[in-house]
């Protein structure tokens, strides 16, 4: 399962994900992100430090988000490797 915590900061929105970004939860994250995007144009940030697994669809979503300007924070060697391969630019490295 995945928990999505959304917090609105000034400026922007932070999505803190905990658990597995895989299967049906990928669409949940996508919907949250699209809803946020529709209502505000402020920057968006995704925190993946509590994510334990990302599947192929999750990786594709992160890639799409990244390309649209979302900054992504990761930790753990697998998550970091996935995020680093989205693109080297713009990724907030943790630790």
């Amino acid at each position: 399962m995945l928990k999505i915590a959304v917090s609105n900061t000034n400026p922007g929105t932070i999505f803190v994900l905990s658990g597995r970004l895989a299967g049906p939860w990928v669409d949940e994250v996508r919907n949250c992100w699209l809803k946020q995007k529709k209502h505000e144009s402020a920057p968006c940030h995704v925190d993946l430090r509590e994510v334990t697994f990302i599947d192929e669809a999750g990786t594709r979503l992160l890639s799409q988000m990244y390309r649209q300007g979302v900054t992504i924070q990761a930790s753990g060697c697998l998550t970091r490797a996935i995020v680093q391969n989205l693109d080297k630019t713009g990724v907030h490295k943790h630790g």
Partner: peptide, 22 residues
């Protein structure tokens, strides 16, 4: 490589070890 990363992250989290790279 991806399997190594996966298992590393899994066991590092379980053992609370701050392993970030291979």
């Amino acid at each position: 490589p991806v399997l190594v990363r996966y298992f590393t992250q899994h066991y590092a989290a379980r053992m609370k070890k701050p392993i970030e790279s291979i």
